[in-house]
Design a protein around this nucleic acid. Structure first.
Length: 490
RNA sequence: GGGCCGUUAGCUCAGCUGGCAGAGCACCUGACUUUUAAUCAGGUUGUCGUGGGUUCGAGACCCACACGGCCUACCA
């Protein structure tokens, strides 16, 4: 029994055959419109001779309204749309009949002149037209569009055809990344590319993906961070480097996590985490003004002003003010853990002091950091690559930046003491034996550091989350064109 | 990993207490030379996610599974 879909497809294949039998190629190799739709609109607005010149346009047919001896088609292209008008008396009977073979979804090229209808709609009256590509499937309905979230992600092209807003978000994403590059380029950072396949997955604490290289007969990890290779470059004399690259973490998928995501990391020699704070503030301010036209952004029901300087508060003070616990009063995991239990929290026995402090932060502090805020000075245990704080050996010079409760930056004064770095790796290994998510000693990296690394500030920004924030999206899947979904057999 | 919810025509969605599978859009035929969610008249369209079970009878009830969403857990 034929389904409606099959029926429609068969009809379209049929009209495709008919076109061919008339000597018309339904898939011509090229077509060069004289104007983009956008340019045509501008041309008409400009008035004068140009407005009445013969031009040609191309685009995908998204609607058709046939009135007998006259038909209107709406075509879309590059985010713009325009109406085409075909009159039997203008194009001729034969050509007008051919128009019946054009369906919604097809690409069409049309030549003619611009005019306004009596309701003021800018329209191209076609003197001739060409099939540019035949579509064999019906597009989703025009009014409600495509709403099925699964189809929107699995067949993103349909989402982009139907939902103007989606196209706008991804256009903004592109502009945001461009703005980041120009911001860093202006400050004389050099963009580099480092390996995705790595013998050790370092630079972060996360479970990596594993793959296998046949010719080398060796297993590799997909990188979970960019850090260790970028630092090698700072050691090599690139004083300002950055990379915007895909990283991979073999962890849960959620509204804030995709297994592959885009990370920006940049490193600046002869600077510290205070310099990085200024860099982060300046960067977000720059992006917002450049891309959104204002430093005031909307996220959910809040309006947030990104103008520097942002609020700065130490992690210790933040936790103290939000839940009354001063972690400096608890020198070890046992004492801090029992205090947390007394507060009614569930405390995992295996966790170290640093991890417990991290738990306090994410429970009591982070969700409330609506205004742009830097949290400063993290426990050394959970920051093996950051330099100890001046005047307090148990803390490191590290900050995380939050906007609307979302972590958007993580930075430190980079650890450049190779003896301390080796000790930190060993400490990690001792504390978390058997844990896959552990920073492993990277001898090659340690050796590089032993040659001497300048004092350096380093910064990481999750691009996807930054885009979520700047485009007011609540799910990371709505800022990643093809988010990870489970395979569906059909 | 756990909990809750969802899956019906190409798309958007109804479908009551278990009793013939529905609407709008799209598509097809006809009318219409300034329409624009065009309009008017007529028509076609189903693996009700998959597999079992209960029942005279299942889209609906039960069980399992798949995929998706949200929450939670995990997670720099």
């Amino acid at each position: 029994m034929p389904s409606r879909l099959k029926d429609i497809t068969e009809q379209r294949v049929e009209s495709l055959k008919e076109l061919r039998s008339q000597g018309i190629d339904p898939y011509p190799h090229t077509y060069h419109p004289s104007h983009s739709i956008k340019a045509a609109i501008a041309l008409y607005r400009q008035g004068g001779e140009g407005a009445s010149a013969a031009i040609s346009l191309a685009g995908r047919i998204l609607a058709r309204r046939s009135m007998g001896k006259m038909s209107f088609l709406d075509i879309h292209g590059e985010g713009e749309k325009i109406q085409l008008c075909f009159r039997r008396d203008t194009v001729g009977q034969e050509k007008y009949n051919l128009l019946k073979k054009f369906d919604i979804g097809d690409f069409i090229g049309a030549e003619g002149t611009l005019f306004q209808t009596r309701t003021g709609e800018l329209t191209l009256e076609a003197s001739d037209f060409t099939m540019l590509s035949k579509s064999l499937h019906p597009l989703p309905e025009k009014w409600h569009g495509l709403a099925d979230i699964e189809i929107r992600y699995r067949q993103r092209y349909l989402d982009l055809i139907c939902n103007e807003e989606v196209k706008r978000i991804f256009t903004l994403r592109s502009k945001i990344v461009t703005a980041i590059r120009s911001f860093l380029d202006d400050r004389e950072f050099i963009e580099v590319e480092t390996p995705v396949f790595q013998s050790r997955a370092g630079g972060a604490l996360a479970r990596p993906f594993i793959t296998y290289h046949h010719a080398l007969g060796e297993e590799f990890y997909l990188r979970i961070a960019l850090e260790l290779y970028l630092k090698r470059l700072v050691i090599g004399g690139f004083d300002r480097v950055y990379e915007i690259g895909r990283t991979f973490r073999n962890e849960g998928i959620s509204v804030k996590h995709n297994p592959e995501f885009t990370l920006l990391e940049c490193y600046q020699a002869y600077s510290d985490y205070f310099d990085m704070m200024e860099l982060v503030e300046g960067m977000f301010f720059h992006i917002a003004r450049e891309v959104l036209g204002s430093p005031r952004i909307t996220y959910g029901d809040r309006i947030i002003d990104l103008t520097p300087p942002w609020q700065r508060i130490t992690l210790r003070d933040a936790i103290k003010s939000h839940c009354g616990i001063d972690f400096e009063d608890y020198p070890d995991a046992a004492s801090l853990g029992s205090r947390m239990v007394a507060e009614g929290m569930e405390v995992d026995a295996g966790k170290g002091r640093g991890k417990l402090i991290d738990d306090l932060t994410s429970t009591f502090v982070e969700p409330y950091l609506t205004e742009p805020t830097f949290l400063l000075d993290y426990p050394v245990e959970i920051s093996p690559l950051a330099k100890r704080k001046r005047g307090n050996d148990r803390l490191v010079e590290r900050f995380e930046g939050f906007i609307a409760g979302i972590e958007i930056a993580n930075a430190f004064t980079e650890l450049n003491d190779p003896i301390d770095q080796r000790e930190r790796f060993l400490q990690q290994a001792r504390e978390r034996v058997g844990d896959e998510e552990v920073e492993v000693a990277d001898e090659d990296f340690l050796q590089a550091m032993e040659y001497g690394m300048p004092p350096t500030g380093g910064l990481g920004i999750g691009i996807d989350r930054a885009v979520m924030l700047l485009t007011d999206q609540q799910s990371i899947r709505d800022v990643i064109l093809f988010p990870q979904l489970k395979r569906k057999d059909d």
